[in-house]
Design a protein around this nucleic acid. Structure first.
Lengths: 330, 330
DNA sequence: TTGAAAGCGCTAACAA
DNA sequence: TTGTTAGCGCTTTCAA
């Protein structure tokens, strides 16, 4: 079973009685072709069902019309929602996207960056696995533009698109306070990571704006996974069973919190505000408010920004776009 | 900012004082090279940090070492879990995977198949968007092997890997019966789609095995999405409020059911058995049992099967692998 | 064991 | 407006 290249521009050239250069021009919409020749070639193209060979084209032109998306995880609706937004924009602009997985691991991430370089992508959109990533600059060194999403890289000024985390956190915590909270416990994450850091800042800001004190015993740090949400919730409630409001910075830790609460019905009146809207948000027994990030919009914004970089549009550098999330009350 | 190809085999050849053919042989592990030459060339390769240009290689060799995954949706942990399994296997075998999205739409799916052909993938793994897909044969016509996942295509005998849906459904319904159910209501999907059809069969089989009658009024068909689970649950409970057990064939409809039940606390003792395990499965108020599909294993199995086809291993055709799920009790 | 040479299918100077 | 031509970087006969 061997792969056969179908019709080539050579075949078309012969059939139409023109040179391959002319065929190439027609295919690429070059204007310097007479109407007559264009029509002739076009009809041959159609008749034969010609399809360009992008590999040959890329070898010659040094452009692949391919964009790499580097994500830390596939089994994550949030990243995939961003990916869908990206893909939608790029596809309509004639680019193919191709998603690779860093498994939240900087070592793998570096290998994937190499892969993108090898595959000669025209650009990349990266959701960093960590707060550093010195190897990203190898992309720039090769002239491959890229845009960061969700997380910023320490000490590097890069194009980036992310949720306005401070504002989102502020509004969620504010909602708790307006609902009567005097104390709001907090479950956050590693402050080296942009979203965790900024959401904590938003929390602090809301508390201080309303004249409430921060209490270190009610501020816990998890690792964004389910188990740590469970553990932190227990720690908080054992510390102070009178807590009525809890702000959690992502969905997975919130699930952990709900698991703990399901086992401890004595905290039935605890209300949870959290980041990350999902179809199940309203089902949680303790759902109070949820910050819905504009994920698809983050994707489309990142894609459009990248396209501008690829086309060398005259934009100041770097561009950091913060998109506002929506607070959903339950 | 222009893309620069770094070191080429020409450079290496010059540096090592050999021909490009020899360099190519060394790179590709050809045995017909003297130990001495190999070492010489190898050291030049290392010193210069040479990297092959896969585009040039593909143009010549007609192989891309790229596998396409065609999925109906990105924001779906189940498909993505399969994709991770696939990717893991293929990566270690030196293949790059590239995922494209059909958006559950046969028209888009056909376009994506064309894309895979254009990209000259060496093979494809397809989660079909529907129960037909005449265009898949164009892959075979081109000599591109493929493996179906999750859904079979009507009237076509193809390599495929999927959960043993009948057995999974049987065990879930059986668990309900053993827990005392005399009636088990059913929420399924379009029987043209393999999983819906087979899960219904498993349901029927369990009922008849235990001498229970099927009651058409308790058998509803949804579209696999949340809303239809909500609607079907209401219909069933309005029909027969005494129902104590409900079997639902996927997670999303189950979420819909839970939403309905959250609004109708009078059905507090209803127990739900369902397909699709998730971290939130245990959180549902009505969780009774869940069938956990071996998703990663489906991915790895599909990838290995595909690799065998690519290497023209002598396998009977077609291969249909059914992997057994696990019943999780809550 | 090694090298010379011919392309893979396409694009892009440069000429005409 | 069109054609000629020279590759892109690599693999792979074929000969030596």
């Amino acid at each position: 079973m061997k792969r056969t290249q179908g019709v080539t521009i050579k075949d078309i050239a012969r059939k139409a009685g023109v040179s391959t250069a002319t065929v190439s021009r027609v295919i690429n919409g070059d204007t310097k072709v007479s109407e007559k020749t264009r029509e002739l070639v076009d009809s041959c193209l159609r008749e034969t069902g010609y399809r360009v060979n992008p590999i040959a084209r890329s070898l010659r032109s040094k452009r692949t019309h391919t964009i790499g998306i580097l994500a830390p995880e596939f089994q994550n609706d949030f990243f995939m929602a961003v990916a869908e937004g990206i893909e939608e924009v790029l596809r309509t602009k004639g680019y193919t996207t191709f998603i690779v997985n860093s498994h939240e691991d900087p070592v793998e991430e570096e290998a994937r960056v190499q892969l993108l370089i090898e595959k000669q992508v025209d650009g990349a959109i990266i959701i960093p696995a960590a707060h550093t990533g010195p190897y990203f600059t190898t992309l720039r060194d090769r002239g491959i533009p890229y845009v960061l999403v969700d997380r910023l890289i320490e000490g590097m000024d890069e194009d980036a698109v992310l949720t306005d985390n401070r504002k989102g956190a502020f509004s969620a915590v504010e909602a708790c306070i307006l609902a009567g909270a005097r104390k709001v416990a907090f479950i956050g994450g590693d402050p080296a990571l942009t979203p965790a850091k900024e959401r904590f800042e938003g929390y602090c800001e809301a508390m201080s704006t309303y004249g409430l004190e921060l209490d270190d015993r009610l501020i816990h740090q998890g690792d964004m996974h389910i188990r740590s949400g469970y553990d932190a919730t227990r720690a908080i409630l054992e510390q102070d069973p009178s807590i009525r409001f809890l702000f959690i910075i992502n969905l997975f830790m919130r699930i952990g919190a709900e698991q703990y609460l399901a086992e401890h019905p004595e905290h039935g009146d605890l209300q949870i505000a959290a980041f990350d809207f999902s179809p199940i948000s309203s089902l949680f027994d303790h759902a109070f408010a949820t910050v819905r990030q504009p994920l698809e919009q983050i994707g489309t914004t990142a894609a459009n920004l990248l396209l501008k970089r690829i086309e060398h549009a005259d934009l100041p550098f770097p561009q950091v776009c913060r998109l506002t999330g929506e607070l959903v009350m339950h």
